[in-house]
């Protein structure tokens, strides 16, 4: 136990001495989250009323004026046409009961739907039927999309995996051919299992601490709340941090690439996986969901990000424990495999 505590202390000190890991795990998330929040704030705002022209003499002018979604401007035909050409209005309700538009858009379709509704009502009344405009025929459930929550959930998921860099750094301190410190360690009776467990624990805790600070920063500074289910969220991020460390250990120990190559490799792979999961907006994710749905099913960033917004934006915890167990299982498996790669070796060239 004393050995484990000593390893814990050594790994903690080393973690704070590694400036690369400090940047990627501690500083970069705050920088990027700030820029993303600045950029994406305002997305998902309420749809404004549709600026529409109606020609003088339109038979349903008084009805159109009552439609809430329309910002109606009553104009002479020539004036309305000029407004349409200048894109000051989306469409013109013409006196001949047609709609004139400039561009195909969903707003133009809404205008057409308004006009169609008037035509249908007129036809129904003519046939002696009375459509009831005072009743609600649908139960309306509002589910806000809030793209910024979805984007930030994926970004937080990516940052939780950034403990990968700590894993890479741990291997640097264990394989004698990679650093002078590791060469010194190699001459001591170091218990590798204890050293790796201590390293994984301290780096997971540091990652969890950093993610907590990031969530508090988001909540207090930007009023974006990822702490509606705090204990579950923090446990999820901690387990993800552990898996990140385990991936770093595995990638660090399983091949002969230099650690200077493994860091950009990790950044690039996580950036790509983040983009796939929707970190750069919903379009890439929707494209993949439509054409390559298996890709995000295998993408751990996507899984963690989904769990994050399900917990915090939708208050749904279904699948949470399965997700935690899968992440922990993967972390155990990769840590075990890394131990095999990190078994004692002789470095005759040293």
């Amino acid at each position: 136990m004393a050995g484990f505590l000593s390893h814990l202390s050594i790994r903690g000190k080393l973690a704070f001495k590694d400036r690369g890991s400090l940047f990627w795990v501690f500083l970069y998330p705050f920088l990027l989250v700030t820029m993303m929040t600045l950029a994406f704030r305002g997305l998902g705002a309420d749809m404004p009323s549709i600026r529409t022209a109606a020609e003088v003499g339109h038979p349903y002018l008084s009805v159109l004026e009552e439609v809430e979604i329309l910002d109606l401007w009553i104009m002479e035909p020539q004036e309305a046409r000029e407004a349409l050409m200048d894109r000051q209005v989306t469409g013109i309700f013409k006196a001949d009961r047609t709609l004139q538009i400039m561009d195909n858009s969903i707003q133009a379709n809404i205008l057409k739907e308004v006009g169609t509704e008037l035509a249908r009502a007129e036809a129904a009344y003519r046939q002696g039927y009375q459509p009831d405009f005072s009743r609600e025929f649908l139960l309306k459930g509002d589910q806000k999309i809030d793209p910024i929550l979805s984007i930030l959930a994926m970004t937080l998921s990516m940052f939780a995996f950034y403990s990968y860099f700590s894993g890479i750094s741990m291997v640097d301190h264990l394989q004698a051919n990679l650093s002078p410190l590791a060469a010194r360690f190699a001459t001591t009776p170091l218990n590798r299992l204890s050293f790796i467990m201590a390293g994984s624990l301290i780096n997971t805790l540091l990652s969890a601490f950093n993610m907590t600070a990031l969530l508090i920063y988001l909540k207090l500074v930007w009023q974006i709340d990822f702490l509606t289910a705090p204990s579950q969220t923090l446990l999820l991020l901690a387990v993800t941090g552990w898996l990140g460390v385990a991936i770093g250990l595995f990638v660090g120990s399983s091949n002969r690439l230099s650690s200077k190559a493994k860091i950009p490799l990790g950044i690039t792979v996580m950036l790509v996986l983040g983009a796939f999961a929707g970190m750069m907006g919903p379009d890439p994710r929707l494209f993949l969901d439509r054409y390559l749905p298996w890709l995000n099913r295998l993408n751990p960033l996507s899984h963690v990000g989904k769990l994050l917004y399900r917990l915090n934006a939708l208050s749904i915890s279904e699948g949470y424990w399965t997700g935690i167990l899968l992440l922990a299982g993967a972390a155990l498996l990769l840590s075990g495999a890394s131990l095999l790669f990190l078994r004692k070796r002789q470095y005759k060239e040293l």
Binding site: T98, A119, R120
Partner: peptide, 12 residues
């Protein structure tokens, strides 16, 4: 018959 009705749309 009524549901098939649509407002004609012209493109400027």
């Amino acid at each position: 018959e009524v549901m098939e009705l649509e407002m004609p749309v012209k493109m400027a």
